[in-house]
Design a protein around this nucleic acid. Structure first.
Lengths: 264, 264
DNA sequence: GCAAAAGTGTTGCTGTTACACCCATGG
DNA sequence: CCATGGGTGTAACAGCAACACTTTTGC
């Protein structure tokens, strides 16, 4: 164990001695969410080694000595899913990249005993991605899956399936962040492909919140908010019924007034 | 420099080798905000050593090997101000402690070059405190001060006064978090003493947002929101004029519908 | 009395809800 | 023709902004 030699505090000035510091490891963990088949799903990978061998966990890994935190999250995301993420909110580039995804810092978890082996501080990132073909984790499909969050937290949850470390808490925080953030921002478009219809966007809200929304009022609300949606010109009938206009995400990132989440 | 020996990745399973990890230092930095004299102010301390010697900086310090992150933030806060913080949002205890303050995690900053000496990852915490007598930093009053945020970011800012490291960014993020969060939560009460009047609470909103609010509509709004304010029974004339009812913060932590921030 | 701050009443406006209704396509 | 989803019109209603007005203290 490395010996900690914190400098004596004199007048609150001496903040730390750079030549001596406590032995910390820093990792990033990813809460990757998508909407599949009308359900909010999270990406999980299976652990192959102790501790928590065989448990499902969030994807993640070490931060390398010369990379930033968001950079590390982005790299891990690409390694495990092939996704490329946009970390700056409100950037228009997301639509240009067919595998674009939203990435933002969620929170940092550093309980002293969260990893039984050593002191690990983990910076969690939240990723919102459009529906992807299938997860890949180093080419081994059996070690990664999309888990519906209702199975993990809902009434019909399987309590036998606990996540490794404190990843259950991290995932819950990520889901809650996503649920509240689509209320007052245009983030829900991050779950959609580059071009999408109003109905598809509505089904995203319904899946994330677990509610049903009035299609007519929803349509008026989102098309009436300036900068939220940009008509792309095309139409599609991929959902059946009358052809629907196609839109791309507009530049507006903040919705005012917000989308109202029904209390159900 | 410690040599990094990251394990080879096999099927995305091997996350890290606990016996070898990159050399990271983990610190906490505090954005301590209060309202003094109708102005939103932040607590700054003067650095006594290189780098950035003589610059103003956010209070903070090392995370000790056996303490949690919030625990470290709370300890640093107590050491530098004498404040005791409540980290769990919505706790009723704040009113019982005359030096109670709200504490929540803000974000984590880990740019590889943010500290010129070594790799430092800093977990920033946001503290909202009622007006305090005067800052103390290890007993040396000249090394700590309350700085109005308008002087640091407003039109009348003094550009010569840059903060150390990336603390300007951290402070800006904290101020923005506070400004947006009092909109849809009852957090503004954290800036008030245990007992306060509706007018005092309104002046908090006005100082944090830099706007003027209609006293009549504000009064109706906050007293009409169930669980926001609890009448304590007493009255006061400390603001002059007709005696005002005294309130304590109610249990409600989320305001729905939110307080509307004027665009001015 | 006068200034100052606390409260209440009222009116018009904005935005939401709920639902009737029409439109355009595939089968 | 009918089912399906897309889109518009409209009336009832809730909440907010603006402002006139009353109340209760200190000086």
């Amino acid at each position: 164990m490395i010996i900690v030699r914190e400098t004596t505090k004199i007048g609150g000035m001496s903040r730390y001695d750079p030549s001596a510091f406590p032995p910390f490891a820093v990792t990033v963990d990813l809460v990757v969410l998508t909407v599949r088949d009308h359900e909010l799903c999270a990406l999980l990978v299976k652990r192959g080694e102790a501790p928590f061998q065989g448990y499902w966990a969030l994807p993640g890994g070490f931060v390398r000595p010369d990379e930033g935190l968001a950079e590390a999250a982005s790299r891990e995301l690409a390694e495990e899913t092939g996704l490329r993420a946009q970390s700056a909110p409100g950037q228009v580039l997301a639509g240009q990249n067919p595998f674009g995804a939203h990435l933002e810092q969620l929170a940092t978890y550093g309980h002293p005993q969260r990893d039984p082996r050593m002191r690990v501080v983990s910076v969690a990132y939240l990723v919102l991605a459009p529906d992807l073909p299938s997860p890949r984790a180093g080419g081994d499909a059996s070690s990664a899956r999309w888990a519906p969050v209702s199975e993990l937290f809902g009434e019909d949850r399987n309590d036998g399936e606990l996540l490794a470390f404190d990843h259950g808490q991290i995932l819950a925080d990520g889901v809650e962040r996503a649920r509240s953030k689509i209320e007052y921002s245009s983030l829900a478009t991050a779950f959609c492909p580059p071009e999408f219809t109003v109905g598809e966007l509505r089904r995203v809200y319904e899946a994330v919140w677990g509610v049903v929304l009035d299609p007519r009022n929803f349509h008026r609300k989102v098309t009436g908010t300036p900068g939220f949606l940009l008509p792309s010109g095309g139409t599609t009938t991929r959902q059946g019924g009358r052809p629907a206009q196609l839109f791309t995400a507009g530049g507006a990132t903040v919705l005012n007034p917000p989308m109202l989440r029904p209390e159900a």
